[in-house]
Design a protein around this nucleic acid. Structure first.
Lengths: 192, 192
DNA sequence: CTCAAGGGAGAACGATCGTTCTCCGACTGC
DNA sequence: GCAGTCGGAGAACGATCGTTCTCCCTTGAG
């Protein structure tokens, strides 16, 4: 998922990014070595280091490209199915993908966010961009608050689906999102 | 946080778990070596391996103990402040802790869930237990659905707070949770 | 005091990592 | 055909990891 069609003119950089991206996402960053990436990409180690000066640079490119593609796919789906709630329909399809392993940015942040500024920044930027996207789908004077709430539902659904393996998390989150969006801001009853 | 008071009779196992737990949580599991744990715990390497036969075993013990303590603290807070929503007040305090680095189970799952069954299982069990706890705080015929929704808000809030560093995520989630709990199941309007 | 036992400090070992280097075969222009 | 260049395959290197082993000092019993 989130891969571009394999064109004939695809250069080595893309080959490497495809292989590394799949491995990083599936098994984690530290668990995948450069030698394995080299084998999966079908390039020589020398060329690998010509394309990316270091593993850190490769990791950063992987995250940047995944962020772009992930948001493109999401935006594409929502463009064809208007309404914020369609975000959760798209999530459901993603969760049902056999290769689904959670959010690459949450995973990377948990693994390396404390030691790598680049990874931490990539995760922050990804989530900020997602929040901005959700904001664009909302109207009303409490858009900001609702965008924040939806962002949490999205992240919670991704995490829950990843850990439990149940794509139904998307439906649960969609239901919650519908309630949050439908409901008038100030309720009558107050349960504490 | 989630540490027991340092008693005089604390045995070496606890010393090691304290040191390893703090390091694992702060920097990730793979980023912390046994030598560093040994130094932080102030025990010899020989004794470390007498307490835990391998790093895997130490990691599993770390996760199991953290799960127990985390849920004890949460349950303690909610016992003193009845109502599900107090969960989010407790989360806020946790998020504001300088050492807060997200959910240890989400982080570990992202880092090692694909390669270690023990870690994946620990994360699943932790989230299942949390869901059970939330379920216990709810009444009504749609308790199950609401527990699932609250679980997502909790995980989403933890993740968002970890990545953005803003403890206010707890308030946002609390607001959403209040709406979800207050709202009657079937709304009149339908926004799609 | 002698001596056996145990534990502490950390060296040693084998594996693996990221990165660089070496070698060698294949292609280019002439 | 041939010198020269390029790139592929993977060995080599230094660092670091988890784990084990060695050495030495302490301690307590007799």
């Amino acid at each position: 998922m989130f891969s571009a069609p394999a064109g004939v003119g695809m250069d080595h950089r893309e080959q490497v990014l495809d292989a590394a991206g799949a491995l990083f996402y599936e098994r984690g960053i530290q668990a995948v070595g450069m030698a394995e990436i080299r084998t999966a990409a079908g390039v020589s180690l020398k060329r690998l280091y010509q394309c990316f000066a270091s593993k850190d640079e490769l990791v950063e490119s992987y995250l940047r490209r995944r962020d772009r593609r992930w948001r493109e796919q999401l935006a594409g789906h929502v463009a064809g199915n208007p309404g914020v709630l369609s975000v959760f329909d798209w999530l459901r399809d993603w969760f049902a993908d056999p290769g689904f392993r959670g959010c690459a940015f949450i995973n990377s942040f948990g693994e390396l966010g404390a030691t790598s500024d680049a990874v931490a920044r990539a995760a922050r930027e990804h989530k900020a961009a997602l929040r901005e996207f959700l904001l664009d789908q909302l109207t009303g004077d409490d858009r900001e608050k609702r965008a924040d709430q939806l962002l949490m539902l999205v992240d919670g659904a991704i995490t829950t689906a990843a850990i439990t393996g149940d794509p139904g998390a998307a439906d649960t989150a969609r239901d919650a999102a519908r309630t949050l969006i439908t409901k008038p801001p100030n309720s009558l009853s107050s349960v504490t």
